[in-house]
Amino acid sequence: MYEFKVSRHDDGRRLDKVLRGLWPAVPLSAIMRSIRKGNVRVCGRKAHPSSRLREGERVSVPWEAPSTRGTRPMPGPVDVVYIDEHMLVANKPAGLLSQPSSRTSDSLLGRIVAMYGREGGFPPTLVHRLDRNTSGLVMAALDGLSLRSLSVAMREGKIFKRYWVVVIGDLPDRGEIDLPLEKDTESNITFVSQRGSRALTRYRAILRWKDFTLAEMELVTGRPHQIRAHLAAIGYPIVGDVKYGGLVARRWENALRPLLHARELSFGDMPDALSVLSNMRLIAPLPPDFERLLPPQTALLG
């Protein structure tokens, strides 16, 4: 038997959720069976999978101590846009993974762990991710309560994510793209399909020049590659996005990645632990590849 004490980061969480997080290699069926049989005990007593744990309670389980391996700290700069004791918002550069794909790969999360450690035993954890080649704002929670609160706030639509893109063509002033999307996991491509999940993107044009439009995109839903797939589907592929736009996306030969940037995070009324974020608006400056394509007189947009 192994026994551990519930930390403040897991206060109020369900027993089964905490065990799944600590022992990801143990099948869920085995965890549930151990709880039902009484092999998992909270303060010496049988418990239910949905039992809410409290800080300081002792939990015993029929498995070895959980692995302490987590995201490996990686040296490297972190462009911090906002930080307090609960959370951090970083401006991720294009080309950097949000979180590592292996123990040795560089990532934004690995750099955050190296810089800010594991305060109170809680490893900094990303609340959401961006694709490797998407630049812009990413949130990381620095304690368990904040991770749960931020995740709930995102589900409840209290956190608004807006992206800037450069597309090929003269995009209309504003509109909505309401097309269901399905992802092919084998090819890692998202496509419009009536069998897919509902996906809604709102957009507005900011600037037009030559054969390009700079536009702001708001994700109402959050499907994989949603903005890229939606824009390609209506005939306005993102500059540099050969995967969805084909060769036409190479209209500007210096685009080495899709020109998609997570520009803004806005917060509505946030819960008590995160009340300082209420009505806050965070902006990530435009990256160099955007600035190189935009007309010189628009430099102030950055």
Rank of each mutant, 00 (worst) to 15 (best):
A262T: 06
Y163P: 15
G38W: 09
D106T: 09
K46L: 02
V42G: 11
G245C: 13
T134Q: 05
S151F: 03
G144Y: 13
L142I: 07
E186H: 03
V81N: 13
I159Y: 07
A233K: 10
R250T: 12
V166M: 09
L265N: 13
E216D: 10
G21F: 11
T134A: 12
A65C: 03
S60V: 05
F267T: 14
V40N: 07
I168A: 05
T298M: 11
A273F: 00
R208A: 03
D184A: 08
M1N: 03
D131E: 04
V127W: 12
L150N: 08
S135R: 09
L200F: 05
L145R: 09
L137S: 02
D16L: 09
R263T: 07
S193H: 14
S266G: 12
V192D: 01
W164N: 01
G157S: 11
V78F: 13
Y82I: 14
M74W: 05
L231D: 01
M270Q: 07
F4T: 03
E218D: 07
P237T: 07
K161S: 08
A215Q: 01
R281Q: 12
E216R: 13
H261Q: 04
A65S: 10
F267P: 04
P288S: 07
K46M: 00
H48D: 05
E57I: 00
M32E: 12
G302A: 10
G245V: 06
V78T: 00
P49G: 09
H86G: 14
P49F: 10
L277G: 02
Y236F: 15
L137H: 09
P75N: 05
P123E: 15
I234F: 09
L53F: 05
Y2W: 13
D178Q: 09
G117I: 09
S60Q: 12
S29C: 07
L200W: 02
E253H: 15
G136K: 00
N188T: 01
L171V: 11
M87A: 15
T201C: 05
A114I: 00
A25R: 14
L88G: 05
N91F: 08
P75Y: 11
R155W: 01
D173W: 01
A141R: 13
P124G: 14
I234C: 15
A199M: 10
R292M: 04
D131I: 14
T221V: 07
E253L: 03
T201I: 04
V220D: 05
G21C: 04
P258M: 08
A299C: 02
E216C: 06
E182C: 06
D79C: 01
R45K: 14
R263H: 01
S50I: 00
L282R: 13
W164E: 05
L277C: 05
N188V: 03
V220F: 10
S197F: 00
V220L: 12
L171C: 13
R52C: 02
I31K: 01
P296F: 11
Y116P: 02
Y82E: 13
R103A: 13
G302W: 04
P180S: 07
I168Y: 13
G245P: 10
S101N: 06
L260N: 01
S101A: 15
L293F: 10
Y244R: 04
L142M: 08
D170W: 10
D269L: 15
V42N: 10
L294I: 15
W63L: 02
V242W: 14
S193M: 04
D173S: 06
G268A: 15
R195G: 06
